[in-house]
Amino acid sequence: MRKYIIKRILLSVLILFCATFVIYIVLRCLPGNYVETMAIQLSTKPGAKSFEEWMAQLSVTYGLDKGPIEGYFVQIGNMLKGNFGDSWRWTVPVIEKFNDVIWLSFVMGGIAFVLELLIAIPLGVVAATKQYSRADYAITAGAVLGYYAAKRFSLPTFFFATLLKLVFAVHLGWFDISGLVGRNYAQLDAMGQFLDKANHLVLPITTLVIVSIGGLMRYTRTNMLEVLNSDYIRTARAKGLSEKKVIYHHAFRNTLIPLVTIVGGSLPSLFSGALITETLFSIPGIGYTSYHSMVVGDIPFSMFYMTFMAILTLAGNLIADILYAVVDPRVRIA
């Protein structure tokens, strides 16, 4: 087991190395980036140096004077030393900005994840036990609304977010359309500030839950159906056990095996933030921050964010595989 884990981790490092290389090359090869824009702005100021001179100076400042491959090794060396550079867009060290915003995303993702589990698993079980009934159709239809194929968004998040905004923010006026704090946030006491933030997080979290609930629900249903069709369930029924006992004692426990795997595997992704949802609701989490870094071509922050995402994905896969072996004794890892 330990050997397997070490092997996997080493492999992950190799993959990460390749992935960051690809990301870095793509970022470096893009024209029209932040530095160019800045040089244009600086050179239009009265009495300024020419564009070329500014460009040359800024390139040296931002470490763009080296070739892409050499630049990559400098970058990766710095990253290994824990130096991620300064964000161009936010003009603070990347790691500082990251610390500012990550916890909000984590809280948001965590709440959404717990809600998702609490809603999706029971519904999935019900849908499976009443296959092809009206309840199943209703739940499946609802689930497919939120179907995602492995990646986070497979559903028009933006459309649902807009609908929610229209109904709850514009027509009912319960929440603000966007932002994390209301306009009188500064005058509130500590409790009031907490409630204000909570109020602003309701719609984004709802969006997240709606969008991602379907995948888990369908996964539960499929696995439950597979278990219900197996021989030992027939045996249990033949023994004369009550249907309740068959489903919740025998079937559900076996369904938990793949569920634990997928749930464990998606734990790291709680840190990845919700790019689209945060941007739509202007919630200053990691997703929102990196969206705004990416559209202006802020290489240090984008590089950091994408590397971070890649690490999270790899960690998720690794956890899922290990958990699979831990939970199901039939699986042996060579």
Binding site: L11, L14, I15, L16, C18, A19, V22, I23, V26, L27, L30, P31, G32, N33, E36, T37, K151, R152, F153, S272, L275, I276, S290, Y291, M294, V295, V296, G297, S302, Y305, M306, M309, A310, T313, L314
Partner: peptide
């Protein structure tokens, strides 16, 4: 399969956003 793994762990949406923004710039 290792190439597949590399592609799997490159976050696609951020990459697409960066490419889109770059094409805007060009």
């Amino acid at each position: 399969m290792r190439i597949v793994d590399v592609f799997y762990c490159i976050p696609s949406m951020p990459l697409l956003i960066i490419l889109g923004a770059a094409m805007d710039g060009m």
